[in-house]
Computed example of a mutant assay.
Amino acid sequence: MKYTTEIIIKLSLSEFIKKLNSPENMKHWQEGLIDYEHISGTPGQIGSKMRLNYKLGNRSMELVETILHTKLPNELHLTYDAKGMHNVQENYFEETSDGFTKWTSKSEFIPTTFMLRMVTLVIPSAFKKQTKKYMQNFKNFAENGISVANA
């Protein structure tokens, strides 16, 4: 399943990248993130891996993030692997004519189990909604200092 999501953040591209590229800031916009750990490679470089642990209601989830491609401040491509799911995210950032940042995220979810294959077929909107929510959470944090960690 593939889809594209866009959002405008009212920050310059350099300020946007500073906030987005800080692992310490993730807890402020990635709802449910309880901790993260760098596990291999040079942080921020191609091949670098980070383990992310989430608590979503009664459910725990572990993801491994891998940097596939980076040309900051304009591109950052990552994969996220979890039990039953492989996600590829291509992120593009561009400064708008009014000095803000347009963030375009191209997502591809590849289920690796029958159950998750069915979920992506039956309710693909759940994945799109989650991506949009995280992007909106980032916007709220970056522009207004509103953290989901305090919610």
Rank of each mutant, 00 (worst) to 15 (best):
H69Q: 15
K19W: 00
D81W: 00
I7D: 05
N140I: 00
D98G: 04
D35G: 15
T79H: 04
E37R: 09
G57R: 04
T70P: 01
F114E: 03
E90G: 02
V119T: 11
F109M: 07
H77I: 03
A151E: 13
Q89R: 03
G32H: 07
I39A: 05
Y80K: 04
A149K: 14
G41Y: 05
Y92E: 13
G84W: 09
D98F: 06
V88G: 01
K128P: 00
V64E: 04
I39W: 02
K132C: 00
A149S: 13
Q136L: 09
G57C: 07
T5F: 01
T131V: 15
Y92K: 13
D98S: 14
L13W: 03
Y80D: 00
M135S: 03
S60G: 08
N53E: 04
P73F: 10
T101N: 11
F114A: 06
I9V: 15
L56R: 09
S48F: 01
L121K: 15
K71A: 13
T70N: 07
H69T: 12
V64N: 00
T112I: 10
Y80C: 00
D35M: 13
A151K: 14
T96K: 09
I8Y: 11
T104G: 06
L56T: 06
I9S: 01
R51V: 10
K133T: 02
T104E: 11
F138Y: 11
V122R: 05
T120Y: 02
I67G: 05
V122E: 03
V64R: 00
N74I: 12
G41L: 06
N137P: 07
T104V: 15
K71L: 04
N87I: 13
V119D: 03
K2H: 09
I46F: 09
K55S: 11
T96R: 11
E65T: 08
S14H: 06
I7A: 10
E6S: 15
E6M: 08
T120V: 13
H69F: 14
L121G: 06
M1Q: 07
N150Q: 10
I67K: 04
G44T: 08
K10E: 13
L72D: 12
N58R: 07
Y134H: 08
M50Q: 10
M50R: 12
R59G: 00
V88K: 08
I7T: 14
K55T: 12
N58V: 04
I46C: 09
Y36T: 01
E62I: 14
E65H: 04
V148P: 07
M1L: 14
M118V: 12
M118L: 14
G84Q: 09
L52S: 02
S60V: 05
H77N: 15
V122G: 07
K132E: 12
F16L: 07
M1F: 11
N144W: 05
K128L: 01
I17K: 09
I7K: 07
L68Q: 13
W29L: 04
E65S: 13
T66L: 02
N87H: 09
N140H: 09
A149I: 00
L11H: 07
S60Y: 08
P73Y: 08
D35S: 15
S97I: 09
L13D: 02
N137V: 06
K19Q: 13
F93C: 05
G41M: 07
T131S: 13
L76T: 00
M118E: 03
T101E: 05
H69L: 09
S22R: 11
